[in-house]
């Protein structure tokens, strides 16, 4: 994680909302960046750090829900919190099913908002961590040769070396060498750990 301060991204077409939310979140030590529309946000956001996305569900142009769909397609790690001035129950349901952290109605309890931001950021961090781990594992897997991959699968299946040798029609010694390489490349200390990685 390169940046230290948690980041809140605000997308709202009302300038007072943007400014007041920025004022609020910076007062508790967050960073804040605001955008006037979903389109502007998409143009300018690289998705390179964990952040909470605070977005109004109703905007002219692309709506909050549309943005959520676009982000999901792009496998964004942002934690999304929806805000709205209207009582939109059907929208709320769709938002939650789409993976939003929460759906808050204005005027909201600021403490609740900050809690949800915190939660979103945590989720974002967690998501990114998982993703990072995921890619690390994938990178490690990429290092394996074809044969090593085969051995890995059989080891994780719990087969003894003698069985693996028999199945792959190679010598036990070869199996032992492959096994050692796999462990090293996969950076796993034990078979159990290896199994967890897959």
């Amino acid at each position: 994680m390169p940046d230290s301060a948690p980041l809140v991204l605000v997308v709202d077409d009302d300038p007072a909302m943007r400014d007041s939310i920025a004022f609020l979140v910076t007062s508790v030590g967050y960073d804040c960046r605001s955008f006037t529309s979903a389109e502007e946000f998409l143009r300018n956001w690289q998705d390179d750090r964990p952040a909470c996305l605070l977005v109004d569900i109703r905007m002219s142009g692309m709506s909050g829900l549309d943005l959520q769909n676009r982000l999901a397609e792009a496998k964004s790690s942002l934690g999304v919190v929806f805000v709205t001035g209207h009582g939109d129950v059907p929208m709320a349901v769709r938002a939650m099913r789409g993976g939003a952290i929460d759906f808050l109605q204005k005027p909201f309890n600021d403490q609740l908002l900050l809690d949800r931001i915190r939660e979103a950021i945590d989720v974002s961090i967690a998501t990114r961590k998982v993703a990072a781990e995921r890619s690390s594992i994938e990178a490690r897997l990429a290092r394996l040769t074809g044969r090593e991959r085969e051995v890995l699968d059989l080891v994780v299946a719990g087969k003894a070396n003698k069985q693996i040798a028999a199945e792959l029609d190679i010598s036990i010694k070869t199996v032992e060498v492959h096994r050692h390489n796999v462990m090293e490349k996969m950076e796993a200390a034990s078979v159990a750990e290896l199994a967890r990685l897959i």
Binding site: A16, F23, S27, K106, D110
Partner: peptide
């Protein structure tokens, strides 16, 4: 309903500013 929303905006903003001020005062 539009009116309700309209009034909500400034009210929400006021709440945000107020809480922000309190936090800043504490810090």
């Amino acid at each position: 309903s539009g009116l309700a929303h309209e009034i909500n905006q400034p009210l929400a903003a006021i709440a945000n500013y107020a809480t922000g001020c309190l936090h800043r005062l504490e810090a």
